[in-house]
Simulated assay, not measured.
Amino acid sequence: MSIKKMDIVGRKSYRCDILFRVIDIREQGNTKIAVLYGEDFRLIADAPFDDLVPINPSERAKKSQQFRSMEEQSLQLFRQDLHLLKEKREFETTEGYKKPNNYFHMPGRVLHLDGDPLYLKKCLTLYETIGIPVTGIHCNEKEMAHKIGGLIESYRPDILVVTGHDAYSKSKGEKTDINAYRHSKDFVLTVKEARKRVPSLDQLVIFAGACQSHFESLIHAGANFASSPSRVNIHALDPVYIVAKISFTPFMETINVWDVLRNTLTGEKGLGGIETRGILRTGMPLNKE
């Protein structure tokens, strides 16, 4: 079978339910093994070559269109929420529209660490569409904990995203055992290192995790929001929708966790969190020159 790196494939044993990118090819004895990254989900998997099926361009386009429709619907719902938040801020800032609309807003600054450069690019495009100031850095999951301290010092973010790829392997242990996960331990160590620099849950809001990640360990390590409570796959763009809600909620307001999750593509099975203050600050006067 002529499958090479970066080809798009499906797994016969899973009825090709998820599209994968081949990112590495290895030999295990006489068996050829492909290391796979999900195209739309933050999932990493290994599969023997005889379980792989190349996905032709037309089939790939059809599946991709289904996800693009979901993404557009989620973005539309978020824009509606953003419009309502903006109207509420204008009413409160102008004391019921009695004062001039002469103010400006400062949304939260985001530092987004991603183990996948293609996902990072997709996320940065969405951040830009929504209007969130962001610095995106591609970093291997196993290197994140070593680099996060210096990155926080350099960029001083209000919100930190630590994500990439992950997966739970039943053959390695129970779901309660963090050693049974591909990168959950790396994410946990990164969150702990970040909390050494900024202990307050409100001064630095952290989202951490990827597909099937060990949710409880990430929250206990100091993340405000994390994946994946039910150990399901999360969409590549889900972290952005969580960050956007935090970034545009005023710092005097507490964010209801359900309000954050309801417009994501995965929902409460794949994402969860704790009560957190918003980040947005309002200032005046606005220089309109």
Score class of each variant (00 low, 15 high):
29 G>R: 01
94 T>E: 06
264 T>R: 11
24 D>S: 08
262 R>I: 13
152 I>K: 04
150 G>W: 00
13 S>D: 05
204 L>I: 03
63 K>P: 08
8 I>K: 07
137 I>H: 02
64 S>G: 14
100 P>L: 07
62 K>S: 14
215 F>K: 03
289 E>G: 15
259 D>S: 10
70 M>F: 10
165 H>Q: 04
45 A>D: 13
200 S>V: 11
237 L>M: 14
120 L>I: 09
145 A>Y: 05
288 K>S: 12
55 I>R: 13
17 D>V: 12
142 K>I: 04
222 G>A: 06
215 F>L: 06
189 L>I: 00
141 E>K: 12
263 N>Y: 06
256 N>S: 13
147 K>M: 08
226 A>N: 04
22 V>P: 03
289 E>F: 12
11 R>I: 13
163 T>I: 02
79 R>H: 15
44 I>G: 09
99 K>E: 15
109 R>N: 07
203 Q>K: 15
170 K>R: 13
134 V>S: 07
245 K>S: 04
36 L>F: 05
128 E>L: 11
79 R>T: 13
207 F>A: 12
220 H>F: 01
95 E>P: 00
288 K>R: 14
289 E>S: 15
36 L>C: 05
199 P>D: 09
2 S>L: 14
136 G>D: 11
277 R>W: 09
246 I>P: 03
91 F>A: 13
161 V>I: 10
49 F>T: 03
13 S>L: 03
199 P>M: 07
91 F>Y: 08
251 F>K: 02
116 D>H: 07
65 Q>S: 12
256 N>V: 11
195 R>L: 05
279 I>T: 12
279 I>M: 10
81 D>I: 04
261 L>R: 05
68 R>P: 01
288 K>D: 04
65 Q>D: 14
115 G>A: 09
287 N>D: 14
136 G>N: 10
8 I>P: 05
182 R>Y: 08
48 P>F: 09
